[in-house]
Nucleic acid binder design. Structure first.
Lengths: 225, 225
DNA sequence: ATAGTAAAGTGTAAATATAACACTTAAAGT
DNA sequence: ACTTTAAGTGTTATATTTACACTTTACTAT
C-alpha cells in the first residue's frame, strides 16, 4: 500500500549470565562475511511476519534452547555504515539467563562461549557499544528493582545475591546494609533450608515470591557507576 | 550483499511543549490513507541513506522550523498489524520544544495543533500507547535530571519551573522544598533581573548554566506516578 | 575438646535527606 | 495604611543512609 524503500532489520542480543561470581555474556564466532570468524553478539534477521520482540525471542530460543527468556530492549543502532555488508538497522536487546550444565552444552554446540563482561575482547561492528549500553541499562534496572530471578538458581542465599550485585556494579555492597535493604523490599521469601556450602554457620535460602513484582519508579540502591 | 527482505521504517515524534501551565503535545491531521484525517503524531519515513536519529531530526525540523531540537528515543513499535496500511515498524521519539509565537505560526501552517496531554483525543494506530510511554519516559528523566531547558524560556523563575514539574507529574510540589532541592543541584544560575509579572515582590530569573550537565545516575525527585 | 575462623545475622549511632508547614519579606493594588 | 500574593527562609519531626561493631553458629585444625 505504501510506496517506500524497505530496510534490513536485525536483532542483536546481549545475553547476560552469572557464574563464578562473574557477570558474563555470550559471544559467537560470526559465520558469514563480512568479518567472518570474528566475535559478535547473538544476532538474527527480523522477518516480515514477526515483531522485533518475537524475532529476538526466536533467536534466543534457537541458540539456548530456553523458552521465556527475560529480555529488555536496549537501543536502536542505525548508523548508515555501521555494518560494512549493507544498510542494516539493528535493535539491541539484553537478555538474562542462568548458566547451567544443560544449557552450557546447548550453547557450546552452537560454538558460543561465555566471556566475563569486564575483560571483553573486541567485537564486530558496533557490538562493543551495544554491550556498554546494555550493561548501563542493566545497572539502571538493578537500582530500580531487585534483579536476580533470571540469573540465580531458584534458591539462593543473600550472599549469592549480594555477590551478583557486586559483580554487576563492580563495588562491594555492605553485607549488613544490603541484607536489610533487600529484605525490606518484601519480594523474597525465606525457605526452611540452609546452604552450608559457603559458610560454616549456614545461610538460609531465599527465593523470589511468585507474585512479587517490586518496581515502583523509585530507586532502591544508590550506586555510582 | 545480504539476502533478506527489507521492512518499512518510520519515526513518530511525541513533541512536548509547555504553555499556560499545561504540558501539551503536537498533533496532526493525517493526510494519507488509511485513517486519513484522523489525529496522529508527527511521523515520517526513514530513508535508506540516513540514521533513524537523522530521520527524526529531519521530520521535526521540517514541521517546526527549528534546528537542534532535543530528542530522546522512546521505544520501537513493531507489531505486525499495527499499521493497517502495511508492515511498518516505527521508532518513537519524544522531543521537547518551546511554544513561541514564531513556531506557533510555522506549526499551524502545517495544520498541526497543540493539545494538552491530559485530555488526549483518540489517535491512530498505537499512537496513544506511544504517548503514554513517552510521558512515562519524560517523567523518569525528570526525576533523574532537572529538565526544563528546552521547554521554558531562556530566563525563568523557580515558580515557572515548579509549575512545569507540577504539570509533568500532576502533583503539587512544595514551594520551599522544591526551591531548596533545585538550587542544591547547582545547575542553575541566578540572574540580576527580577520577574514582576507573577508576584508583587518579584522573583529572580534563573537560567541553566552553560556547562551544567547534571544527570548522575541517581534520583533527585521522589514522585509516585 | 577446644580454639580459631568465616560468614550469618543483628544492633547502633552519626550523618543526611525528606516532608510538612510556619514564618518573614517585599512590593503592588486598593 | 492595609491587604494580598508569591518570594524566600527557617524549623522540626521523621526516615534513610552509612559505617561500623557485635553476637551467633558450626565447621576445621590442633
Amino acid at each position: 500500500m505504501y510506496q517506500h524503500e524497505g530496510i534490513l532489520i536485525t536483532v542483536d542480543c546481549i545475553v547476560f549470565g552469572y557464574e563464578d561470581d562473574l557477570l558474563k555474556i555470550l559471544l559467537f564466532k560470526r559465520w558469514i562475511e563480512p568479518s567472518k570468524d570474528q566475535l559478535s553478539l547473538l544476532g538474527g534477521w527480523v522477518n516480515k511476519n514477526e515483531s522485533v520482540d518475537d524475532a529476538s525471542r526466536r533467536v534466543l530460543q534457537t541458540i539456548t534452547g530456553l523458552e521465556n527468556i527475560y529480555m529488555e530492549m536496549v537501543d536502536v543502532f542505525s548508523e548508515v555504515h555501521r555494518d560494512p555488508g549493507g544498510r542494516v538497522i539493528s535493535i539491541a536487546y539484553y537478555a538474562l539467563m542462568p548458566i547451567t550444565e544443560e544449557n552450557k552444552k546447548v550453547v557450546e554446540s552452537h560454538s558460543a562461549e561465555w566471556y566475563p563482561v569486564h575483560e571483553m575482547p573486541e567485537l564486530i561492528f558496533d557490538h562493543n557499544q551495544m554491550l556498554e549500553q546494555a550493561l548501563s541499562k542493566l545497572r539502571s534496572n538493578a537500582t530500580t528493582s531487585l534483579i536476580g530471578k533470571q540469573l540465580l538458581p531458584k534458591r539462593f542465599t543473600l550472599l549469592q545475591l549480594r555477590k551478583l550485585y557486586n559483580a554487576i556494579f563492580q563495588v562491594e555492597f555492605d553485607p549488613g546494609n544490603f541484607r536489610k535493604k533487600v529484605l525490606s523490599l518484601k519480594v523474597l521469601e525465606q525457605l526452611d533450608i540452609k546452604d552450608t556450602s559457603e559458610s560454616k554457620k549456614g545461610a538460609y535460602f531465599y527465593r523470589f515470591k511468585e507474585d512479587g513484582s517490586n518496581d515502583n519508579n523509585n530507586q532502591i540502591f544508590k550506586v555510582d557507576y
